[in-house]
Nucleic acid binder design. Sequence first.
RNA 1: GGAGACGUACCCAAGUGGUUGAAGGGGUUAGUUUCGAAAACUAAUAGGAGGUGCAAGCCUCGCCGGGGUUCAAAUCCCUGCGUCUCCGCCA
Length: 424
Amino acid sequence: MIDVKLIVEKPEEVKKALKKKLWDFDPSKVIELDKKRKELIKQTEANKAEQNKLSALVPQYKKEGKDPKEIFTKVKELASKNKEGEVELKKVEKEIFDIVAELPNLPDDDLLSGGKENNKVIKEVNQKPNFKFKIKDHVELAKSLGLVDYDRAAKISGEGTWIYTDEGAELEWALINYFISTHLKNGYHFILPPHMLNEESGFGAGQFPKFKNAVFHVEGNNKFLLPTAETALVNFHRNEILKESDLPRKYFAYTPCYRQEAGSYRTEERGMIRGYQFNKVEIVQYTTEEGSDKAFEEMINVASGLVEKLGLHFRLSKLAAADCSHSMARTTDIEVYLPSIGIYKEVSSASNARSYQARRTMARYKDKDGKTHYCHTLNASGLATSRLFPAILEQFQQEDGSVIIPEVLRPFMGGKTKLTPKKK
RNA sequence: GGAGACGUACCCAAGUGGUUGAAGGGGUUAGUUUCGAAAACUAAUAGGAGGUGCAAGCCUCGCCGGGGUUCAAAUCCCUGCGUCUCCGCCA
């Protein structure tokens, strides 16, 4: 959430920054409402103060045997006036909230404005594979290697889903274990959160109210399935005040991610590139205001280090303002190469939300002087498997149809080095 | 799922309509004492949100959240959330 004060005090700056996110915002309405709000507060509070003073006299009157009737009528009058003021105030506050709660985060100054077309590749890592034979795509490979069963998934669940089978399940689980063991080594706290979260959590992370229809809602209990573990982790310290010495706090969680992706399929996204459910390990940090830039770099390194050690060819992209997520001030994507379609697909998004999420969750910290500040929150996938799995199959496929297992995964697969095609 | 109890500050806890910005403990911090510590004693210790002001300060709201009753609510009523106990069911 953007600070209302900032909108009122520097409306042009806010407007300009949002423009970079291709977001048209007219601050005048908020300014006007805020003015009204302050007036209402002054009025009702003055009445309240008088009301309190009068009420406090009652016991004294009684003690002295005086009749407090006169006070009663006066206070009653004030009370009903206050009631009106309060109702009006709440209305105005809600109007402000409804506007501001939908606004995206302000992008950092150094970002280019506009969307995808202005993203900048800042680094390419590991050699791009060069095949001397006709390559297969990951769907074909997964089938011939017996790793994934799409047909039975359609049978037991529906379209947009898949089943990992046998060595496919082993490979998937090995990836997750590899991530987990790395994050543990790096001192992140391991969290396994519930997958059904409440409305407040959706609001805190910035998914609600704007993206309410992008998640699966659970019928009958007002909860939703988390679209990413970020939603859980960013709400972990909701309504808390941490000590500055506790920061940075580093967490990671493994959860499936549940997303309504209806209608968003493209032909390039067959197989497991986009589905209703995929596995992801997510890392999140809570930092001080000053600490978030450093944490951001660290998290990019953590995430890209994971891909690098897998030996996959990938690149880093600094996203333009409008391609950053709604809640984020800056984002760097890690995109892995898929040879079959010759394009790069996101396996991780590392973002700095600055205080945007913390304002929503009221996650704060106290500095040495006892002053409270909003935390900064950052998140990065570390990593999502559903893009890596295809990339591993495609990038490491051999002419005979087998696939070499990346070395870092072998300890988690009983030492296996290779996946070989299964006979029908 | 059925029955019941409870939710007060960092923690425990008193408080059932009125000078309660909330007794009392514990803890924490500072001091006295001590060579130092322990113990004892003394003192301080409501966090937070908002308004106003250059500031000191002042004001409003805060006893889980929301609503209501009343001249007046931590205290009464309704509701949501949460915790605990017993019974049932169960991985």
